[in-house]
Structure formats: structure tokens, C-alpha cells
Simulated scan of single mutants.
Amino acid sequence: MSRTPKPEWAPHKAVWIGFPSHPELWQEDLDEARDEVAAFAAAVHAGGKGEQVLLVVADDEAAEAAKRLAGFAQIVVEPFGDIWLRDTGPIIAGDRVARSFRFNGWGGKYDLPGDDDIGQRLAAQRGKRVERHDWVLEGGAIDGDGTGLVVTTEQCLLNPNRNPGLSRAEIEARLAADLGYDRVLWLGNGLHNDHTDGHVDNLARFVGEGRLAIPVGGDNDPNWQVYQQAAQRARAGGVTVVPVPSPGRVLRDEEIVPASYMNFYIGNASIVVPIYGAPDDNVAVREIQALFPERRAIGLRADAILTGGGSFHCISQQIPA
């Protein structure tokens, strides 16, 4: 059976979603972040027409809050540091094996108890055999189209704070050996002020085989050149670029935050798109809807989740059917 993970639009059996569990990390944003996560979970569940939602909480208090807000979900209590399960959770291909990679807190920035092995524990709960790989890789750093093609950024995977002893060729070899990716499309940098060092799931997402969605920004957009350079590299690599809007310059406490419509989640029934009160919110949801006509695109506010540094895709990890 193929080691290559299925594309996100392939059917899911369930999805893990991280639920904000540590008041000291979220402070005044805790309640709003929990509400946003619950709304996201409900959109993915789609009244039972979508997929099973596994809300992962770190303690009993968070479990009670999750039950109140999302009674349709299965609550999974496992200690963890923060909710970014796209990066800390296991990567599962089309078999019973879960691939688990080393996690070093996004290059040593956020070392929180439980994040280094939450993926192994979640996989074991689902009866998966865990295959461990001794190099740093976060799920948000890569995106595949199901054919063996994967996209990533040099800013992240070639960053010396991840795997300083590995060359580009060695990383490509490991992506092939461990995940079956035999072709790597290298983009350059990620979004401005993205503390993940340029995760690709905030920059560019596959929306079909060989079709990569990349935002287009205006002159006031802090990332317009990043988008432009990414599109140039993608086209040079033989990939069809699908342009979508950018939310533009989004500020939080007068600081630019890495807001992106690209952090959408592709569920069985829904495409859930983060929105921010930006002028192009509705346009972005409509254009993403057009890419997935068999699903319903839903725009949901993600302002509080973004205070932690990510959005809907970052807090979720699907379990393929």
C-alpha cells in the first residue's frame, strides 16, 4: 500500500481538532478561541453529514468546556502543550501506520510539555502502529496533491533551527523514503511574522492534482511579493497556479499578523475558511467554493485562534478513510 498520504480532499474517517486548554497561553482570548474552535468543529461535523470530530483537550476542565460547546464531538483527553495538531499530530497514509516525526517547538521557540509525543499517543489510541522518524518535520510545513508531489518552503524545511545537518537533497530523500513524496516543489519564504518560519499551509494549498492555490495581494499587503515569488516558482515547476484573494494587511495590537485564507480545512462535507473582517472575506469564500463544488464552503471568524499564531488547518489533522 502507498506510503504517500492521500490529498486532504480524499474521504476522511475522522479529524482530530485541538481545543484551547491552557488559560495561561490564551489569557483574555481563551473563551473566544474556544467558541471559534467549536464553530469550526460544528462546520466540519455538518450535522453528521461530514466526519467524526475528535476534540482533543488537555485536562478535565477543558473537557467540560468542550462538551458544553460541542456536544456532538467525541472528547479525547490527552495532555498537550498547545492546539496545533497539524504540526504535532501523526501523519497517516492509507494504511494502519502513523508516521511520527520529531517536534522541537518550531525551531526551539515554544517548548511545551506533551507536544513532543502527543502524535504518538493519539495514533496509539486509534490502534495505529507508530512509525517514528528521527528528523524534525511539522505537518503544516508540507502539502501534497496525492500523486507524490509535495510543496514546501525553503524558509522552514531548510531552516538551521530544524535539521541543521541535512542538505536539501537529504531532506528530499527523507520525504521520499518516509512519506513517498518523489517530487518536491520548493517555494521560498512564508508569510510576514509567521512564527512557524514560513509554513506552506498559510501560503499555498493544493486544490487538485497539480493545481496550487496561491493568494494575490495588493500594494498594501505585507506579503504581496511573497505571493508573487511563490506563484513564479510554482509555474516554473510545472504546477497550475489558481489565484485567490488575500485578506491583506491584518493588524492585532498594531502589529501585522499572518492572516491567510489558505489556512482552510477540506472536510468531507465542508471547506471551512478562516475570515478576519477583511474586505475580501466573502470573495475568498466564494472563490474557494468554486474550487470544491461538491462541498459547502463556510467562512468563519478566526481572530482569537490567530492570536496563538494559526487557524483552522493548523489545529486539525485528518484521519483518512
Rank of each mutant, 00 (worst) to 15 (best):
R96E: 11
V250F: 13
G208E: 11
V97E: 13
A14M: 09
L185A: 14
S21I: 03
F19M: 02
R211V: 14
F80Y: 14
D82S: 12
Q289P: 01
P23Q: 12
H199I: 08
N263A: 12
W9V: 04
A297T: 08
Q155Y: 01
N163C: 08
D178M: 05
V150C: 14
A304Y: 05
L203D: 02
E294I: 01
I214Y: 09
E24K: 11
E24L: 03
W16T: 03
G217T: 13
A46C: 06
Q74F: 00
N202D: 13
V244C: 08
E131H: 08
L291K: 11
A43W: 13
P247N: 11
V77I: 14
S260M: 05
E287T: 04
P247K: 12
L175M: 08
G308Y: 04
L25R: 10
W16D: 13
C314W: 02
G139F: 09
T147E: 08
R129C: 00
R286V: 01
D60T: 13
A58D: 15
L185F: 01
Y265D: 00
W186I: 02
S167Y: 02
L187G: 05
V226R: 06
R126V: 00
P320H: 10
G309N: 10
G218T: 12
E154Y: 09
N282A: 15
G308L: 07
V136R: 10
E61C: 02
V15K: 04
W26T: 01
D201W: 04
A213D: 07
P160Y: 07
Q52W: 09
Y261I: 11
G218D: 15
G140P: 05
E170I: 03
L291T: 07
G107E: 09
P20T: 03
A42Q: 14
T4I: 14
G299S: 08
V257S: 06
E255P: 00
G310T: 00
T153K: 05
A321D: 14
R129P: 00
H199G: 10
K6G: 13
L179N: 07
E131V: 06
S246A: 13
L149W: 10
